[in-house]
Design a protein around this nucleic acid. Structure first.
Lengths: 141, 141
DNA sequence: CTTGAGTCTGTAGTCACTACAGACCGTATA
DNA sequence: TATACGGTCTGTAGTGACTACAGACTCAAG
């Protein structure tokens, strides 16, 4: 009852992945096409595990192509750990770059909002920032 | 020579915004359709300023719809500073949420890569993480 | 006259979904 | 038996913010 003939709605509930997305994953070959009971898809315990893997990888920010690669590596023996490590390391670098980008944005935005709150300057500090020359280091002191 | 009859390629060079994107902005009404010299678009200094504004707002992570709003507010008087501030504050919250998300990813990824490097455990630490139950707090001591 | 660079329109692809429309299926209830 | 309801099906199109062509044209220099 728990592991066989799971309909798509329950797979969705168990994994937190919505139905349309599950069908989408099937269409792009990330999830195998399951057998049918009549016209309806019928999943098993393995599908729950696999889809869970996919979802957790996605939550770590891996692209679907990277997830595909990870699934392939996971299916292989344990000789592939180095490859997995490399994939993760590349991705980690990317995540860190995105964090750095966002922090730069955060700084500028926070400065502008603070300046707005202070309300000392004429005009609007954020609008001024947006009109200002790019990459000019603001004089401060 | 500097301010009139600027062809799209030069506008692109001056703003760092690529040509296809400029035409895309025109199509969606973010940039006005400029007059033509023959069949060619002919921009002026105002377009350089406006597109620069757009680009800088995009670099701060505002969506195109937010940029549209900002452009509208910037065109108004200076009575709109509070509205700009609110827009920026909402966006700032969003940026901070994204940073928090990415940091969570970073932590998990960094842990896995480190565990890989240590190479003590059997199997692959990252693959194990991906197969593991969601949100189970890892025992650590 | 030809070459090359620049520009034009229009369409389709990217990523990872998401949102329908409209049909069908199986069961519980009146 | 009728019907209502919830679940599922296929297929297509939309999202955001571009990006990438194809194939035609314009213009100036050599």
């Amino acid at each position: 009852m728990a592991d066989t003939a799971i309909p798509i709605g329950e797979l969705s509930r168990r994994t937190g992945c919505n139905i349309e997305t599950i069908r989408y994953y099937e269409r792009i070959g990330l999830m195998p096409a399951p057998p049918r009971r009549g016209r309806y898809r019928s999943y098993g315990g393995g599908d729950v595990v696999r889809l869970g893997f996919v979802r957790r990888a996605r939550e770590l920010g891996f692209t679907l192509n990277e997830v595909r690669a990870l699934l392939g590596l996971a299916a292989g023996g344990d000789t592939t750990c180095a490859e997995v490590r490399d994939l993760a390391a590349v991705h980690l670098k990317d995540v860190r770059a995105r964090i750095a980008d966002l922090k730069r944005m955060e700084r500028v935005l926070a400065d502008s909002v603070r300046a707005c709150d202070a309300g000392q300057e004429p005009g609007c500090p954020l609008i001024d920032t947006l009109y200002a020359e790019p990459r000019a280091p603001a004089p401060r002191g």
